[in-house]
C-alpha cells in the first residue's frame, strides 16, 4: 500500500558562505568567544517549506503548482526522500522514482549499451531487472546498431531517445515528475506520449509539478498550490486550477 504522510514537515536550508564553511574560522570562533561570529559568519537560514501537513493515498494523481521559489522542487525532493524534514516528520511508503533529470548518470564517452546499464542503475534497477527489460529498452529506443557507438556521436534527438527509453522502462509505485518529459522528433513523439501515459497510469501515486494547466488537468485529479513554502490551497484539480490560473 503506497502512501505519503507529511506531518508539520519543515525544510530549512542553512546558507553557508565561505566563512562559515571554513573549519579554521570555526576554530577561531571558539578561541575568540564568538565575537567573530556576528561579523563574519553570516549564517542565514532559509525556510524552504513551512510546516506542511499532507496526506496522499494510493490511487491519487497530485499536481503541484506555484510560482518560482514557492518550494515545488524542495517539496518534490522531500517526497522523494532526498531531503529529510528539518522538523516534523515525513513518512513515504512505497518505492519512489523521480523522472526529473533523465540524463543523470549518462557518460557521453560510453556506448549506448553501456549507458542503458548506467542509466538503469541510476534509476535503481537491479542487474536482474535490467536484463529482463534490456531488449525492450533497446527496441523502444529505435537506435539499432547505433547502440554500439559512443553516446557522444548521437544527435540530440537520439540521445534523448536513449535516456527516455531507459528512464521510462521502470514501473515505480510512486512516480515524481517535474514538468512533462519533452521528446524530440515527430515520429517518436506519439510513441513517447503513449509510453508516458502507460507509466503514469500504472503508478500508484503520481506527483507532477507543472506550469501547464492543460497538462495538470489532463493527468491530475488533485492540485496543491504552494506559496512561500506553505500550502495555499489543496483540492480538486478543476477548482484549484481555476483559482490559480484564473478562469
Amino acid at each position: 500500500m503506497a502512501k505519503i504522510h507529511l506531518d508539520k514537515a519543515s525544510v530549512s536550508f542553512p546558507v553557508y558562505n565561505a566563512a562559515s564553511r571554513s573549519l579554521k574560522n570555526r576554530v577561531l570562533k571558539v578561541a575568540t568567544g564568538g565575537a567573530i561570529e556576528r561579523r563574519f559568519d553570516g549564517l542565514v537560514v532559509v525556510k524552504g517549506l513551512d510546516e506542511i501537513d499532507l496526506a496522499i493515498h494510493e490511487g491519487e494523481r497530485v499536481g503541484l503548482v506555484g510560482h518560482n521559489g514557492s518550494g515545488k522542487t524542495t517539496l518534490l525532493r522531500l517526497l522523494s526522500g532526498i531531503y529529510a524534514p528539518t522538523s516534523g516528520s515525513a513518512a513515504i511508503d512505497g518505492e519512489c522514482v523521480s523522472l526529473i533529470n533523465i540524463g543523470l548518470g549518462i557518460d557521453p564517452e560510453a556506448t549506448g549499451r553501456e549507458n542503458i546499464k548506467l542509466r538503469a542503475a541510476m534509476m535503481g534497477m537491479t542487474t536482474k531487472e535490467l536484463s529482463s527489460r534490456y531488449d525492450e529498452i533497446a527496441e523502444f529506443s529505435g537506435l539499432g546498431d547505433f547502440l554500439d557507438m559512443p553516446f557522444r556521436t548521437y544527435s540530440s534527438g537520439m540521445q534523448l531517445r536513449l535516456a527516455f527509453a531507459t528512464s521510462t522502462s521502470i514501473r515505480p509505485e510512486i512516480l515524481i515528475m517535474d514538468e512533462w518529459l519533452s521528446t524530440g522528433d515527430e515520429d517518436f513523439k506519439d510513441r513517447a506520449r503513449q509510453r508516458l501515459n502507460e507509466i503514469v497510469s500504472s503508478t500508484k501515486i503520481l506527483i507532477l509539478a507543472s506550469h501547464s494547466r492543460e497538462l495538470l488537468l489532463g493527468n491530475c485529479d488533485r492540485l496543491i498550490w504552494l506559496e512561500h513554502g506553505r500550502v495555499r490551497m489543496d483540492g480538486p484539480a478543476k477548482a484549484i486550477a481555476d483559482e490559480y490560473f484564473g478562469r
Partner: peptide, 9 residues
C-alpha cells in the same frame, strides 16, 4: 552532488 540531490540512494 548531482546524484544525491536527484536520486534516493
Amino acid at each position: 552532488e548531482g546524484i544525491i540531490l536527484q536520486v534516493r540512494m
